[in-house]
Structure formats: C-alpha cells, structure tokens
Design a protein around this nucleic acid. Structure first.
Lengths: 104, 104
DNA sequence: TAAATTAAGTTTGTATTGCAAACTAAAATT
DNA sequence: AATTTTAGTTTGCAATACAAACTTAATTTA
C-alpha cells in the first residue's frame, strides 16, 4: 500500500493529462454536445491548437466528432464518449486522492 | 469570474505538470534532502529519466543539486528550493480548486 | 461583379519533450 | 586481472504542443 499514489500519478493517462485536453473534457462533461467555436471561445486557444487536441482525443476514442452544416457553413459537433467519460473520471479521482494525501 | 478555473488549468506550470516531476516534488516536500538512489527506488523509473527530470527542475530553479561523496562513491543530494516549493504549492492549490469545482 | 473579408476549420513546420539505451568512471568482487 | 556493481550522464529518437500558413466557401464592400 502506502506511497502507491505516486505510482498512480506516474501512470496518469497521458491522453488526458494535458491542460488543454483537461479543459476540453471538463467542458464536454457538462453539455451533451459542443461545437468547435464554443470550445474555441471558452478555451481561448487557436483553432489549430484546438483542432489537433480534438484529433488526439478522437483517435483515443475519448470524443466523437460529427461534421454537419449550419445553413451553408460547416458546423463541427463534439461529444465525449462513454470511454472518455470513464477515463476522465478515473483521472479526476486519482488527482483527487493525490491532493487529499498532499495535505493541501 | 466563473469559468476562470479553466484558464488556470490551461496556464498550469509546465515545469511541474509532468507526472514524474509531480512525484519528485511530492517526495522532496517531506524530506529536507533526498539522494538520487532514494528518488529512483521510490519512483521506479530509470536513472536516465530521473537524471533528465532533475536537470529540468534544476534549470527552472525548483531544486538544488549537491554532488558529494559517501565514502568513495558519488552521492547526489537533491532539495527543493523556496521557489520550487512555492510554485508547487500554487500548482496543488489550482488543481485542488479545479477538483472541487468538478464535483467529483 | 470583382475584390476583399470573414468563417470554420485543417495542415505544416518546428522547437521541445520524455524516455530508453548506451555510455562513463570508479569501486568492489571473483 | 577480469568482471560486476554503483552512480550517475549523454545520446538518439519518436511523439508532442503550438503557432503560422493554408484551404474552402460564404458574405460583404466598392
């Protein structure tokens, strides 16, 4: 038992453990779907940066990306998958128990 | 106010926000000094990996590295600096308030 | 109606990483 | 004398995060 929390920290899911992706997943947990522009304006990052992070999350199977149109303009909708949700919650629980043990 | 926590997450200190370095700093917070071997065996990572993370922390001014001898063998002692301690605590507080808001 | 601007993304380029494997140097053991 | 162990550092490389450049199409302006 004992300092097992440090091995859990070291084994943290790298797909999630990236600030921008933590923020993306946090937003996606509270809405059923979000569009690209909504995420971009909430996160205040460049479109290219958002695009590549979404690709990473999609490749990992953590989000689903649906390309549609609003009128004649492209509209990209993003939602978290069950797997993404589960792994994100696990991630949060590990962080939480780490914080608890840190005594902060 | 409101979703300001996400901008804090995105602005998280990259020198700290790396699992191995979080673990190193966590260990360094509870001892005055640690030696290389102590860190290596507690973290269960390769020496090369530990060496490079310590360099990164040293370059950032977050740890001080003192090379001495135990008998005739090299002994490397590592301690966290005041700046390292302050920034690590700030990091933990940000994570803590994020976890709190996440409702987990 | 031609030119410029805006919208909504994707692709490209690059400098930085994290890590394992290889290496160094000296001490201890066989 | 040769091998192994200890205590690290350096090297090599694949993966990454981000900004800048690009694409495509719609809209606005002159």
């Amino acid at each position: 038992m004992e300092n097992n929390i440090l091995s859990k920290i070291i084994a943290l899911d790298k797909t999630i453990h990236e600030p921008v992706r933590i923020a993306i997943l946090t937003l996606l947990m509270v809405v059923e779907k979000a569009d690209f522009i909504y995420l971009k304006s909430n996160l205040q990052i460049t479109q290219g940066n958002l695009s590549s992070h979404l690709c990473k999350l999609e490749t990992a199977g953590y989000v689903e990306i649906e390309k549609t149109f609003k009128g004649k303009r492209p509209l990209t909708l993003i939602k978290v998958t069950e797997e993404g949700e589960k792994n994100f919650k696990d991630y949060l629980l590990t962080i939480k128990s780490f914080i608890k043990q840190s005594g902060i």
